[in-house]
């Protein structure tokens, strides 16, 4: 793998995380428990679509084959998507969505804080913009974890369930491979932010009267294109018009 190939894959992984996460959040349109949450969750989806666009545009430039952001979003198959698995799982109930957003936004806050110092100027600039949005996603998710965890018996049960069910998909956020190694200085050393993440998550769990699972098994695969059965359905829906009318521009 060359450095250029590594950078291309790094951008695809980050772009796909944003794209697939935004897809699931956007499904909350007209489905939120209260109008304000419809707006909040789809607003986060909007932030993430913007981030995906910036990252995929950059990936297209690195690749050098004149691929646009839309070519990369709408014309790749399942095995060429590199998002982590957690983002593609069905959104479930509100507590499940919040659990996932809480895990990932807490991670992304630490991650983009690090990426702001990347030696790659484009990535540093994207990180600087993203951090403002992610700070808000994290605050919003944390507030809801507290409310639901320490709300009613039912909300506590559902929130605990969301926290437990998604746990085995959090390990993927901290994986590193050849891509990161080749991009020393450009990429974030995620293994180094794991302790901070765990400490922040545990703090919120305690305040929310919730328990963090202790299982050690972590599901992996997405970063290398081995996905759950759900991604294929996302792509069939998302890519439908581009695939059905390949010569059209929209």
């Amino acid at each position: 793998m060359t450095q250029q190939q590594a950078l291309y894959k790094y951008c695809l992984r980050l772009g796909d995380n944003a794209l697939v996460q935004s897809y699931r959040l956007s499904e909350w349109c007209s489905n939120g428990p209260i109008l304000e949450e419809d707006l909040a969750l789809t607003n986060f989806a909007l932030d993430m679509t913007g981030r995906a666009q910036a990252l995929l545009t950059y990936a297209g430039k690195i690749d050098g084959n004149n691929k646009t952001d839309d070519d990369l979003a709408y014309r790749r198959g399942e095995r060429e998507f590199y998002n982590i698995l957690m983002h593609e799982l069905p959104y479930g109930d509100f507590a499940n969505t919040i659990a996932r957003l809480f895990y990932s936004a807490t991670f992304e806050y630490l991650f983009f804080s690090g990426l702001m110092n990347s030696t790659d100027e484009t990535l540093a600039a994207i990180a600087a913009k993203s951090i403002k949005e992610v700070k808000y996603h994290m605050a919003h998710a944390t507030d809801w974890v507290l409310r639901l965890g320490d709300g009613t018996e039912e909300s506590h049960r559902r929130m605990q369930n969301g926290i437990s069910e998604n746990w085995m998909f959090t390990g993927e956020m901290f994986e590193m491979d050849e891509v990161e190694t080749l991009l020393a200085g450009v990429s974030v050393v995620v293994s180094e932010i794991k302790a901070k993440w765990l400490s922040q998550v545990s703090k919120v769990m305690a305040e929310a009267t919730l328990t963090l699972p202790t299982d050690t098994y972590m599901q992996t695969g997405g970063r290398n294109g081995i996905h759950t059965e759900y991604l294929g359905h996302i792509l069939s829906e998302m890519q439908y018009l581009q695939r059905a009318y390949p010569t059209a521009t929209w």
Binding site: T42, A45, D70, A248
Partner: peptide, 19 residues
């Protein structure tokens, strides 16, 4: 049509509009 919007730009505009 949000999940089927045919470009990233179109998806952003539609999300913003519905908001």
């Amino acid at each position: 049509w949000i999940t089927r919007a045919p470009s990233l730009r179109a998806k952003q505009i539609l999300l913003a509009k519905i908001q």
